[in-house]
Design a protein around this nucleic acid. Sequence first.
DNA 1: ATAAAATTTTAGATTGGGCTAAAAATATTT
DNA 2: AAATATTTTTAGCCCAATCTAAAATTTTAT
Lengths: 220, 220
Amino acid sequence: MEISQTEENYLKIIFKISERDGEPVSTNAISAEINTTAASVTDMVKRLSEKSLIHYERYKGVTLSTEGEKAAKRLIRKHRLWEVFLVTELNFSWDEVHDIAEQLEHIKSAELVERLDKYLGFPKFDPHGDPIPDAAGNFTFRRQYPLSELSVGESGIVVGVQDHSATFLQFLDRMNLGLGAEIQLLERFDYDESIKILNRSDQEQILSKKVCQNLFIQKK
Amino acid sequence: MEISQTEENYLKIIFKISERDGEPVSTNAISAEINTTAASVTDMVKRLSEKSLIHYERYKGVTLSTEGEKAAKRLIRKHRLWEVFLVTELNFSWDEVHDIAEQLEHIKSAELVERLDKYLGFPKFDPHGDPIPDAAGNFTFRRQYPLSELSVGESGIVVGVQDHSATFLQFLDRMNLGLGAEIQLLERFDYDESIKILNRSDQEQILSKKVCQNLFIQKK
DNA sequence: ATAAAATTTTAGATTGGGCTAAAAATATTT
DNA sequence: AAATATTTTTAGCCCAATCTAAAATTTTAT
């Protein structure tokens, strides 16, 4: 049975919400994420359930079936591989690629995905530091922390972001805080939970609580 | 006004039929090409006409408007650039790329197309020898003839195909008659309109009328 | 020039994906 | 345990894109 582009998007978003909030995923959570009414979501989850892509019980929310989860991971794999292509081959910046990858992820050809993966040198992470599932659906795990959880004195490398918005990514560029940036936490200010860091490719910087919460660091 | 994927496909097919059979393009010609009923085509041409993408008069067939032709050419440009990418970068063979490019051509991002074009070195022809329109919609013209129109003794290079089917392309591969093959017409057999050629990267070969009609040659 | 054949259009139905408004079920507060 | 609030579902509608069957128009043949 064919999975439509719309259905794929639902599976992807259900996967994403599951990861973030746990299961089961509520109708409202889905509708909030994709800007559709709860009524439409109910319609769609019925269809997805009919196709055995999710488990659904009235008023109880949904969980992905094995099949549904596979489909979601395939989509994420494609999305992230295309993002790598756009950034490393076509020189797009990391804040420009999301919308294009959102379209490219729906291209149907297993062969294409595998060749692209090989062409790009089997990357493990995308331009935002998110792990790229392998053909079997396995993610590479990496121990990483929000910058807000580092202790004073600790050092680390920027390896990912929580917030993928273009404005945040552009801010990070302006601050020389892209992936790979090496930093050390110098001081915490309890007043507003901002911090002072030493950015090795720059100098001392003050970062707000919001920035700290959205930046992932690998300690070293 | 947005052009849907389905609408884009209609524009492309109308462009293709116009090129082949001239204008105006009949409802039946379209329905034959895309495997839909004539009634559905009538519905769609009304919509396209409503959007000023084609000129349409009941019972009189359709022609592309300036806007419609631009859209069709953009689609062809994308299709052929992606085919180049698939063949030259991802090592697909020329008989495998059509269906994937058929999907990729609908990706919406003008920036992506221009970057891809540059990345590929501004190719003028796709893997089947078909010209790639530039950003303004202009095709590179090349004087080429079906092999069936060559005279005995004339030499030339294979530069394109009329028939894009995988079976024909695979046959050409097997005969060492891919793009760039150098040949000379040695003899014509009136009986079945087959010919004998000298294939410089092979040896003497007999080719049927059908093959001759579907192979484009640049004389030299 | 008319009859027959072919083409094209209309009418009416269907399916996927979405909407609003109202009803039903669940969760929260008192 | 009610009453209230929130969430979810149902009912009924819409639009794009398709279909079949029948009607209208154009083309071809006699």
